[in-house]
């Protein structure tokens, strides 16, 4: 089932660092909605959650499954090859390599040529490499990065680098895309562009997105489903409307001011909410 393969389920997830619970008995299942968000103050356990999903952090207790298949016990690159891609809050790019090279890195999991054959560069390896470069070219086009394809990443502005990072995750053709603060440090125009990009990609591909983001305008505009964490515990889970009116969430995170100003924002009309994000930033 295509839909099933995108469904992420977390049960009783607990991660303890020397007695401190980074995550404490967190359970949730993301339904087949397309864009979900995890929010919470700093130290709420958002990054730990991402690390458990990608296999970088082994939980103390609990399970993580994707499409019904347990992710625990798998090595991170195997999880990645199962269709889970992520971006990093602090850019994790190769500054001295080109945009294309950086993005190509996400594509090697789709290479079938063996390592030795790849090294010897036989005709099959060459054909395959050409195909991968074409695929990368397509994504770069979609991201508006095509003109910068052969530029070194270190010469590019921050906002563009963020897009390069996103493109690297997209070429993996993910089933589940984890975005870690994709909007951090961007100006409002860039935020709008990136939101559009994510929406367009989700429209065209069979993919679920789970994002951590601090910008509430972006969250409310993009996410159809929100999980709220606070001090390692899940305090709320629901649609933006439900979450926004949850008294626990208001107390822990959102604050009364936010509730009043955003009250009349439309929830599911995505184009409209993007529009709104744009206006709110200006």
């Amino acid at each position: 089932m295509a839909a099933d393969s995108r469904i992420l389920a977390v049960e009783n997830l607990t991660v303890t660092f020397g007695g401190v619970h980074a995550l404490n008995d967190v359970s949730f299942t993301l339904s087949a909605r397309r864009i979900a968000a995890v929010i919470g103050p700093n130290g709420a356990g958002k990054s730990t959650l991402f690390n458990c999903i990608t296999g970088v952090q082994r939980p103390t207790r609990g399970t993580v499954t994707c499409g019904g298949r347990s992710l625990l016990g798998q090595r991170p690159h195997q999880i990645a090859r199962q269709g889970i891609a992520r971006t990093f809050q602090n850019l994790a790019l190769l500054p001295e390599s080109t945009v294309e090279e950086n993005v190509l890195l996400g594509r090697y999991q789709h290479t079938r040529t063996g390592m030795l054959a790849g090294m010897l560069r036989g005709p099959r390896a060459r054909r395959e490499e050409r195909e991968q470069r074409e695929y990368v070219g397509g994504i770069l086009e979609d991201c508006g990065l095509a003109p910068l394809r052969y530029e070194e990443v270190r010469s590019l502005p921050y906002g563009v680098r963020k897009k390069v990072e996103l493109a690297r995750a997209l070429v993996q053709d993910p089933k589940l895309l984890l975005l870690d603060e994709p909007m951090a440090g961007m100006d409002s125009r860039e935020k709008a562009e990136l939101s559009d990009l994510v929406l367009r990609y989700v429209d065209d591909h069979d993919v679920n997105v789970l994002m951590v983001e601090h910008d509430m305008n972006v969250i409310m505009g993009l996410a159809e489903e929100i999980v709220v964490l606070d001090f390692g515990r899940k305090i709320a889970h629901g649609t933006p409307g439900e979450v926004r009116n949850d008294p626990l969430v208001i107390e822990a995170y959102l604050g009364a001011e936010f509730q009043s100003t955003e009250e009349d924002a439309p929830e599911h009309e995505l184009a409209q909410s993007t529009q709104q994000t744009r206006q709110a930033g200006e």
Partner: peptide
């Protein structure tokens, strides 16, 4: 980390 999570 980024490389491994890109499937390398």
């Amino acid at each position: 980390e980024a490389s491994i999570l890109s499937g390398v």
